[in-house]
């Protein structure tokens, strides 16, 4: 029951935390570009404004896909806070991702179709990596459950450093940061206009932004699992990781999806294989 309560609290608080994280992200990005940047609560304003717009839809089933996307993101965050099975959380999150793509593929619009296909390739790129990371966690803790990680006396990061880097790839793709802002970028200057998001507007877009906030929190949550032994360590890890994400976002050009698929798969698989072999060998630091 307490776990259920945690889940509810997590689901309620996550968007607010997400607003702060994304707001901070935008300010820091601006700072890195020698600008001042928007107010901290800008993501909140954006969502509220979108919510207030007159509804316009491009396809009848779009709202269905959006609501399921949001719900999947919420459920996965809830399950994360309820310390459920990591693999299951990942699967539930994938439901959202798939409906997101389906929503984009519904409309006969060139940009959203191409965006949908690219989003699929992004999913294709990061899914195996996340499964491998989870397999690594399983090998180390003997379980896929989050509470098993909390039961550890040493941070996960020490024995899974390479898998953390692999997770970093997945993180960057999932957060749509350069060099992987391929299916939809945060700003318009992209060949696909806004890719998967092109055909959504108003309320639908607001819901998608909400789901993004949930996903951001989920991903940061997963990231925090790599240092569970002290709250400061966790905070430090999160701050450094996110800061690195923003810096990478600012020092990379956008790459093509072919490059992404090839290079991320090769590096990701090699890195995780090395780390997994290390874990199989039974060696532990």
């Amino acid at each position: 029951m307490t776990l259920f309560l945690y889940a509810i609290i997590g689901v309620i608080l996550a968007p607010f935390a997400g607003v702060l994280v994304v707001g901070l992200d935008r300010i820091l990005t601006a700072k890195f570009q020698s600008r001042i940047g928007p107010p901290l609560l800008q993501p909140l304003y954006d969502i509220c404004k979108l919510w207030g717009k007159k509804p316009m839809i491009a396809h009848r089933f779009q709202p269905l896909c959006v609501y399921i996307y949001l719900a999947a993101a919420m459920v996965s965050v809830g399950m994360f806070f309820a310390q459920s099975d990591l693999l299951l959380i990942f699967f539930v999150q994938a439901v959202g991702a798939i409906f997101f793509v389906i929503g984009a593929l519904l409309v006969p619009s060139p940009f959203s179709q191409a965006g949908g296909n690219r989003e699929l390739i992004q999913i294709l790129t990061y899914e195996p990596l996340i499964i491998l990371v989870l397999a690594g966690i399983y090998l180390y803790t003997g379980s896929f459950k989050i509470d098993a990680i909390y039961a550890l006396d040493k941070p996960l990061l020490i024995n899974l450093p390479l898998l953390f880097i692999v997770f970093g790839y997945a993180l960057t793709i999932k957060l749509k940061k350069s060099p992987f802002d391929i299916s939809a970028s945060h700003h318009a200057h992209q060949e696909l206009v806004r890719g998967v998001l092109t055909e959504y507007s108003g309320k639908m877009l607001a819901l998608i932004e909400m789901a993004h906030l949930y996903e951001t929190i989920l991903i940061l949550g997963l990231c925090s699992l790599f240092w569970t032994t002290s709250i400061w360590g966790m905070a430090l890890l999160l701050v450094i990781t996110y800061l690195l994400e923003i810096i990478i976002d600012n020092i990379c050009a956008r790459m093509s999806f072919r490059w992404m698929l090839k290079s991320v798969w090769t590096t990701g698989i090699v890195l995780s294989a090395i780390n997994l072999i290390w874990l199989y060998s039974g060696a532990r630091i």
Partner: peptide, 9 residues
């Protein structure tokens, strides 16, 4: 090619 910060610079 999506290099926003260079654009800004």
């Amino acid at each position: 090619f999506g290099f926003e910060s260079v654009f800004m610079q």
